[in-house]
Lab assay of single mutants.
Amino acid sequence: TEYKLVVVGAGGVGKSALTIQLIQNHFVDEYDPTIEDSYRKQVVIDGETCLLDILDTAGQEEYSAMRDQYMRTGEGFLCVFAINNTKSFEDIHQYREQIKRVKDSDDVPMVLVGNKCDLAARTVESRQAQDLARSYGIPYIETSAKTRQGVEDAFYTLVREIRQH
């Protein structure tokens, strides 16, 4: 089974770092803004072998026109913010609204991801993020692309959301 996953969120929150940590098991430290990259990885989730087709997208506003296209083809979405960047957390709402509009559905598989949880300088409390996820009816997972904490959990949870859909 193949799953088309799309990673969305503001610029600099760590979308590529999360994806590369999942696929290649290493942490990319330097920031190089993405336009669009796709990665494929075969994994076993709950005993089922599946192929993850992951689209890593641009957070930069100037590429926002490309969003409709990949939102149409994606089956599930990782909505990523950084726990030390309140603005990126506030941006999640717009991504969710755009996904709902493009998919013409209120019920699209999504996982809210709070990345950079290895950093002490948190400005978005776990509780705020949990409340937001609960209001959307989606899971919330904290990750660190640096330490790998929660990385597999985030992507695998999204696959489970798609399966249950």
Rank of each mutant, 00 (worst) to 15 (best):
K103T: 13
Q128D: 10
K116S: 14
A145G: 14
L52W: 07
D68W: 04
Q69I: 06
L112N: 02
G59T: 03
Y70A: 11
A133G: 04
E125I: 08
Y31I: 05
M71A: 08
H165C: 12
C50E: 05
T1E: 06
E2I: 04
V102A: 11
G11Q: 12
I20L: 05
I45K: 05
V108E: 03
G59A: 04
S38N: 03
M71W: 15
V43A: 10
A154N: 01
E152W: 08
N85Y: 04
Y63L: 08
L158G: 01
E62F: 15
S38F: 02
G137M: 02
L18P: 01
S16R: 00
I54A: 04
K4V: 04
D153P: 04
T147V: 08
F155C: 08
D46G: 11
A154Q: 02
R101L: 06
S88D: 09
D37T: 00
V7W: 04
R134K: 13
D91C: 13
Q21P: 00
D104I: 05
T34I: 00
D68Q: 06
T73K: 07
F89D: 02
V124R: 10
Q60V: 15
R40P: 00
T147L: 09
Q42M: 08
G11I: 13
E152P: 05
D131G: 05
L119T: 15
D32I: 05
I54G: 00
R160Q: 14
E125P: 08
Y70V: 15
I83M: 15
K146D: 15
M110D: 01
G59Q: 03
F77Q: 02
R40A: 05
E161P: 03
I35L: 05
D68P: 05
E2M: 05
Y140W: 04
T147Y: 10
E48A: 09
I138V: 07
R40F: 05
G14F: 00
Y70C: 13
D29W: 08
A121S: 11
Q130H: 08
E90H: 07
E125V: 08
G47A: 07
Q128M: 09
S135T: 06
T57W: 03
A82I: 04
D107I: 10
L52A: 06
K103Q: 05
R67W: 14
C50G: 07
K146Q: 15
Q130C: 06
D32T: 03
I141W: 04
R72Y: 10
N115T: 15
R127Q: 11
L78C: 05
G114L: 08
I20P: 00
K4D: 04
A154V: 14
E62D: 15
Y63M: 10
N115M: 15
A154F: 03
I20N: 01
Y95R: 03
T49S: 11
E142Q: 07
E75Y: 12
V108A: 07
I45V: 12
V111P: 01
K41Q: 09
C117Y: 07
F89M: 11
D131P: 03
V108L: 08
G114W: 02
V6N: 06
G74M: 12
L55G: 07
G11K: 15
